[in-house]
């Protein structure tokens, strides 16, 4: 049992998030009979895939004690590049996938390299690279451009029964990430560095290379997100990433991962993404403008952080 809890990184606060999910669903069912339908739930899932993917990347970076604000620029550039080379047939598509995944990992590695080897705060580094990347994206094109093969759009919009393929794909990635963090040395290193970098270093953990890989992985996951976004919109948009930098942090924090690093896991992030997506959906049904959703989101962050503060401050 201990192992199960540790493996899933389950925390008491996840019960609160689960209860919130239940509450939101109840309110949704009460406010509209169109809410609890397979179609609507599939919609909610479609809405949350991109955020879930970016938040997964952010979770790993934050667990390692860092932060990645480069998604805003990175997603823009990656979608533009992908859509402009994906073409119409499987071979160009495959090449585009490989190229964009490599580019994403490369961007992440540059972030990680500057953070680790120059020693600049990741906030400043990723802020800077994000600005550069969005500039590059806009230099390539100011308007949404390019295209993706039809079969790929079909895939992204496809559903297994009433479950979008995107959801299944996301769940698989979360499982893989959880597995990575639990079953590999890399995973334990991430936690060790995030908790206490110096102690980890004394213990022989290769701190620098681990950090480098973390940021590269973050860029890689951003590339996956970019490909998914292209699939949904059919074009590459230099502004596709706007807002994702800060948006990606909310579910991580609400899911119980500490911004200071070392504590938390991907399960919490997934639950938080679900509750945020459902909340937005229900508020829409209740005709509450998205303006109030922002207020709610901000208050949720404050509430979540205030709960966790007591834990780590000794």
């Amino acid at each position: 049992m201990d192992d199960v809890i540790r493996m899933t990184r389950a925390q008491p606060v996840h019960l609160v998030v689960l209860a919130l999910i239940g509450l939101v669903v109840l309110v949704g069912m009460y406010s509209s009979d169109r809410f609890a339908t397979p179609l609507n739930f599939a919609n909610v899932q479609d809405q949350m895939v991109a955020l879930a993917l970016v938040a997964l990347a952010q979770t790993i970076v934050i667990l390692s004690g860092g932060i990645d604000l480069s998604y805003a620029g990175a997603l823009g550039l990656l979608t533009v590049v992908f859509a402009s080379i994906a073409g119409e047939d499987p071979s160009t598509f495959a090449a585009a996938v490989v190229a964009v995944l490599a580019l994403g990992a490369f961007i992440g590695a540059i972030n990680g390299g500057i953070v680790t080897f120059v020693g600049i705060h990741p906030l400043i580094v990723t802020l800077g690279t994000s600005t550069i990347l969005s500039g590059l994206a806009l230099l390539i094109t100011r308007q949404p451009t390019g295209s993706v093969p039809l079969f790929f759009e079909d895939l992204v919009y496809g559903r297994f029964g009433m479950v979008p393929y995107g959801t299944i794909f996301t769940l698989v990635l979360y499982l893989l990430a959880g597995f990575l963090l639990w079953k590999t040395r890399f995973g334990l290193r991430v936690y060790a560095i995030g908790d206490n970098e110096q102690a980890a270093s004394i213990s022989g953990v290769p701190v620098k290379s681990t950090k480098l890989i973390v940021y590269a992985l973050s860029g890689f996951l951003a590339a996956i997100t970019a490909i998914y976004i292209c699939g949904r919109f059919g074009v590459g948009d230099p502004r596709a990433g706007v807002g994702f930098d800060l948006k990606s942090i909310t579910p991580v924090i609400v899911g119980g991962t500490l911004l200071a690093g070392g504590r938390g896991g991907v399960l919490g992030t997934l639950l938080a993404v679900i509750v945020l997506a459902l909340l937005a959906n229900v508020l829409n049904f209740m005709n509450v403008s998205s303006f109030y959703q922002w207020i709610a989101e901000g208050l949720i962050i404050i509430a979540a952080v205030s709960i966790f503060v007591g834990r780590k401050s000794k």
Binding site: L123, L259, F291, I295, G298, I301, V305, V309
Partner: peptide
């Protein structure tokens, strides 16, 4: 007083204020 990281505290305020002014102006 609450020990919230400045990053998160001001991020939350940023989002709340955004909601407040859009709600006030109705967009």
């Amino acid at each position: 007083y609450r020990g919230v990281t400045p990053f998160l505290a001001t991020l939350a305020t940023m989002i709340v204020l955004q909601g407040v002014r859009f709600a006030y102006t109705g967009g």
